[in-house]
Structure formats: structure tokens, C-alpha cells
Nucleic acid binder design. Structure first.
Lengths: 359, 359
DNA sequence: GTTGATTGGGAAAGCGCATTCCCGTTGGGA
DNA sequence: TCCCAACGGGAATGCGCTTTCCCAATCAAC
């Protein structure tokens, strides 16, 4: 038995398909209550489920929201996805998921796929990047997005405007003040921490990472501190761990070199551009026998919920991730004239991982 | 400018829509190469993107996979979702996401929505439950699933057959040996741990939770140990934390009561039915000043990746979550005659949180 | 050279629904 | 009582695509 159609319902109820449609799928015209009742009963008895594809075709809109993330298992994206999902439910739409591992090529494909499905709006949560060799793909991505917008689609981007987007109509940007927050974090750390700083960044060219690095350096400079060395590693836990292995050796070496004096060399403060990298770093240092914050201070960024139970508690910058997802999705639902820019607030949150060791 | 259509492409290329369709959208019949070339060029110059809704309508299949989870931000579900997503990409399909908070009513709605969108298959990752008052909703869910299957849909369920499902055609069950693994865990713990056991479960009626509780009790019994007390709390971190607050008091009280003797009362071993509950419990105990594993041993279930960096390292049962997602999705893609049952393997993994304190 | 098989393209019929347009009824105002 | 407006329902069209069916042309075989 194939799924029953509107026509079958209409026939059973003894009315025309038009009337059945009006009764069942919220039209402006409301048929008489007796007829409506009959139709509804017929639909019920047949177990009628409207064919969303046909509906979408007819009214050219799909009730779909496309969500683009790097990796749904990354808690950062998972949190945003939850916000998107919540808001989607309010809008009575469904979320279509695409993961891209951060590649512009994959992002372009995802946008095309969403466009093909006539998604009402697209939320891009994954940060864009500008690596060498990505130029072409980025251009294509921008072209694809422009086309999507010209066709009436709405695009909400988290964190950063799309590079090279020419059409402004239909673009919504949820601006995350990465740079400012990183600067504030640097300022606060500089006040308490007198040693050197090292920045553990993602791949060069990744906007989110670059912004946070730039902000942190600026904060250091404003506090009259030297520019920090920058390490580039993968934007995930492994990247942090890998960096941590090297870092541990370095810390130990520098200690060994100054064994003659009564004071150990000044403690390093490591700023990882996101929490999972910070955790990777911390894990590597710990397994090398170093203690945090005694042997090195560590700060992250994002304030991932699952990591709140990590010890020592991680100093970080709180970002309202779910809220970001909600805001992006909401804004994309209400077509705005011209490009819309939304702000969200973050909050520097110092915890135990950057505390002063008690001497 | 609206998105261009197949007809427009055909017109520009000077062929019929039928031919254009055959060229662009993989049909069995391959038009001549010169014509194909012309069509492809036309499509390219117009930036043609096939309308997936129309395609879906015409060939009555959508290229969509519906995924049902309780909460996408829960790392357990996020990991499964990643597996689903990976496999979906291989199948060249997209993932439609629905979150239900575990409510049968919401699950039914999600299934209906997927059916409306003519999803090719549905993966249900969230465990079903059988609480009082859920009976009606569960029946409706089963009915909805049955209908979906009768209409040719494929359903893959993780962990547990759907209660009350009558149609067997189109059902795939990825069987997670929760009970056996919990029993093994209990056996291994019983060998090392001589004190009392307490089980921290989810809400009564939640299958996953109930299975693990039952298995653990069986394991204890087989080892000749007393049945463990069972606590029921929310199936997430807060539930664990809440239970932990009470537990901390209890442990302290029992200590105070036996201050006269030289030995402190035997250490408790707490089995939480999932990792996030275990973490919540651990956090609560810790903030009450208790140490793990010295003051209480804790074990979880699932082996959530993000929690690997938690200290003390959590004893748990490893589940190949991504693999589970992949397997479920793969199996749902290949219509099976009758009900298909798949097995996945878990692995008891003892770590520091249940180690013997050094006396 | 004729016939039958095969190929390659087009015309047309849906897929299931929304919606416009049309027509028959009814109700109210003059 | 008559006319016009408003209403309530149905027929028909089209959304964009796939696919069946049909037809003309080409080819091989006899």
C-alpha cells in the first residue's frame, strides 16, 4: 500500500482535491465546517500524510533549513546545532545537516545541495578560511551563495562575512567579537601573568583562529608586553596535543638549562584559540609530567560545556553558542533588506588553569 | 532572477527537456556525446541546479535520511550523528535532523515529518522508553513507523526494537549488547572491589538505562554479590550531579558514624548508566571534597570521546558510537527481507576511577 | 534492395499538491 | 422584487522533473 494522496482523501470525502487541500493544509479560504469535518475524517482514516515534496514544489518553499558545520561531533558545533534546531522547531521547519571538515569545496557542494532542495535558509556555522589554494574554491563558494541569495534564499553566517560575496541581499552575519574578546583575555592575563606568552593557533588562514590570534597579540601589545610566538596546528584536540608534546619538551629543556639558579625560568602562559586545542595541550603537558597551572598556564576559547568538568578548570572566553545558533536561524527566517549584522556577547572567564602558582 | 529550470537549459541547448534530463541527471539512456556536450554547456552557463523536490516527486525518492536523536549537543548522540553523516555522504544523501528530548510524542511527529518528506530511511538513535503515560504515544509511534515501512521506508533503530512494531519488513535493529556489557563490567568490578555497589540509573522505563541496570545486577549476582541499590535520575549530567550531591552527604554521614573504629567504612562503587551521568556524579562528589577513586569508585558507560581527558580517567564501557551510526545508516540503505538484526561490539575499559586506593 | 532490429531523439503523461479562475448560491440592500 | 456582492465549492493549470511511449532514422542481414 502506497501512501495515500490528497486526491484519494478528497474522493473518499466526496469533495474536490481543491477543497481537501484547503481543509488540510492551512489555506486562506476555510471551507464549511461540515465539509471540513468530513475531509478530516477521511484523511484520518486513510492515514494521510501530505507529501512535503509536492507541497514544496507547488508553493516553491520547502520548510528546510540547511546547516553547515565542520564536524557535528565537535562540541562547539554540536552546541550551535542545538540552538539552530531549537529555533527551527519554533519555525516549524526541519534542519538539513552538512559537514564539510572546513573545506571550501565541500561547503560549496553543501550550498548547492541546499539550493537544490530549495532550503528556505542556510546557516553556516563553520568558519571560513583563506588558505593558499583555497582561492578558487572560495570564489566558487561565494558565487554559489550569491546565486542562492539572488534566488531568494537567506544565508546566515556565524562569525565572519563570506569572502567575496557581492550580493548583500539575503546575507545575515552573526558577528562574534573574536578579536576584541581575545584582546580582553590577553589584557587580563597580562595583568596576572608576568612570564612569556605563546599562542597555539589553528591553521594559518582560518579566520576564527586568525582573529583570535590578532586580538590576543593586540591585547598583549596594549599591555606593554612582547609579541607572543605563534604555533600553528590542527584546529582540534589532536592539534593541541601534538603541540603540547613539543611544548613539554621545550619547557623541560629550558628548565634543565637554568638549574644553576635558585629560580626556575618564568612560567609560560599558553593561549589556545579554542577549548579543545587547549585541552589537547593540557593533556600532553600532563602526560609529560607537567602540572597546570604550576608549570604552565593555559587558556582556551569558547567555553565548551562538556569541558566544564575538566580539571584544572579551564580559563576561557565564554561564547553563548546555543544562542548564536538561535540568533542566526532566527535572523535568516526574517528576510532583511540589505545585509544584516547581529552582535553577540562573549565573556572572559578566568578559572583555575591560569591561576598564579602559590610560591 | 529565479533559478533556471531544466526546460530553460533544454531550450538553450536546442533539445527537448527529456534529452536534457537524460544528460544531466544520470539516466540509463545516454544521448550522443555532441548533444550531451551542448546540454552540459547550456546548463553550466545558466548555472542550472536541479530541483531536488521535483526530482523527488518524479522518481518518488528524496535522497534524504532522517535522524532522530534526543539532543544533538549530547556527545553520545553527536558521535552517532557523525557516523550517520559519514555514511550518508557515501550514499550521496543528506541528513535531516530531528531532536525529541526522548518524548515518544516528539518521535512520532519526527517520523511523520520524515515520512512527509519521503525520507528514504530513518535512523532512530535515541532510546525508546516505556514510562507510564507513554503507552499511547508509543503505540502511535509504532503505528507511524509501521505505516512508514509499509510504504517502503527503511527504519534502523539503535539499541532496541521499537515496542509494538508489527510490520517486520523494513526494520533494521543495531543491537547494542547493553545488558551483557554491563554484566561483564560488574563482574570485573566485583573482582577488584569489595565494598557495596550503587547503580545510578536514568528514569525508570528508559530501555537503555534499564538494560544496563539489569545487566549490572546480574553481573553482581553471578559474582555472588548483593543486589545493588538503584537510584533514578535524569539521563544527563545534571541528573548525575543531583544524585552526587545526595550521595556525598551519605558518604560523609556514614563516615562520621564509624569514626570510632580504625577502619573507614568500605568504599562505595558507583555505576552510572552513562558517562555524562558519571561525570556529573564525580563533579558533585569532588565539590563536596571527596576524592575519586579514594573515597568512592565510579564507572560509566559509552566511553564518550570528549571525556577522555577527564581526570581521574573514567572506567567505562567502550561503545563504537560512530561505527554504530555508520552501520545503522548503511543497513537502512539496503532493503532487507524481514527484520535485520546487526551486532556491534563493546569493550569494558577499566581506568583510574575505579582503581583500588593504595592503603 | 528489402525487411526487421536497433538506436536516438521528442511528445506527453504523470508525480502530489497549491492556487487561480470560474460558476452557482445565497443574503442583504434598495 | 430585483440586483449586486460575497461566499463556497470545483475544474483546470502549473510547479520542475522523470519516464514511458512513439516515431524516424540508421544499420545489419539476407
Amino acid at each position: 500500500m502506497a501512501a495515500s494522496t490528497l486526491t484519494e482523501v478528497a474522493k473518499l470525502a466526496g469533495v474536490s482535491p481543491a477543497t481537501a487541500s484547503r481543509v488540510l493544509n492551512g489555506s486562506a479560504r476555510k471551507p464549511g465546517s461540515d465539509i471540513a469535518e468530513r475531509v478530516r475524517k477521511a484523511a484520518d482514516s486513510l492515514g494521510y500524510i501530505p507529501n512535503a515534496q509536492a507541497q514544496g514544489l507547488a508553493r516553491s518553499s520547502s520548510g528546510l533549513i540547511g546547516l553547515i558545520v565542520h564536524d557535528i561531533a565537535d562540541p562547539y558545533f554540536a552546541a550551535i546545532a542545538r540552538g539552530v534546531q531549537e529555533e527551527a522547531r519554533l519555525q516549524e521547519r526541519m534542519v538539513l545537516l552538512a559537514t564539510t571538515e572546513g573545506g571550501p569545496k565541500e561547503e560549496k557542494d553543501a550550498v548547492a545541495a541546499f539550493a537544490a532542495r530549495r532550503a528556505d535558509s542556510i546557516v553556516i556555522a563553520g568558519s571560513r578560511s583563506k588558505k593558499d589554494g583555497d582561492d578558487d574554491a572560495n570564489r566558487e563558494l561565494a558565487a554559489e551563495l550569491d546565486r542562492y541569495c539572488r534566488n531568494g534564499g537567506q544565508v546566515a553566517v556565524v562569525g565572519h562575512p563570506v569572502v567575496g560575496a557581492t550580493a548583500l541581499e539575503g546575507y545575515h552575519v552573526v558577528n562574534v567579537p573574536n578579536e576584541e574578546l581575545a584582546a580582553t583575555l590577553a589584557a587580563e592575563l597580562a595583568r596576572k601573568h608576568k612570564g612569556e606568552f605563546v599562542i597555539l593557533g589553528g591553521p594559518a588562514g582560518l579566520f576564527t583562529s586568525d582573529d583570535r590570534i590578532r586580538g590576543f597579540q593586540r591585547g598583549l601589545a596594549d599591555a606593554g608586553r612582547r609579541e607572543a610566538e605563534v604555533l600553528h596546528h590542527a584546529f582540534n584536540r589532536s592539534g593541541g596535543y601534538e603541540a603540547g608534546v613539543a611544548m613539554a619538551q621545550r619547557i623541560k629543556a629550558s628548565r634543565a638549562g637554568s638549574q644553576n639558579g635558585p629560580y626556575s625560568p618564568p612560567r609560560l602562559c599558553i593561549f589556545a584559540v579554542n577549548d579543545v586545542m587547549a585541552i589537547g595541550m593540557a593533556a600532553a603537558l600532563r602526560s609529560a609530567g607537567l602540572r597546570i597551572p604550576q608549570d604552565a598556564a593555559i587558556a582556551g576559547f569558547d567555553d565548551i560545556e562538556t569541558l566544564r568538568d575538566f580539571r584544572p578548570e579551564l580559563s576561557t572566553v565564554h561564547l553563548p553558542l546555543e544562542e548564536i545558533g538561535r540568533v542566526a536561524t532566527r535572523s535568516a527566517a526574517s528576510p532583511h533588506h540589505g545585509q544584516e549584522i547581529l552582535q553577540v556577547q562573549g565573556q572572559v572567564t578566568l578559572r583555575h588553569s591560569t591561576e598564579q602558582p602559590i610560591l
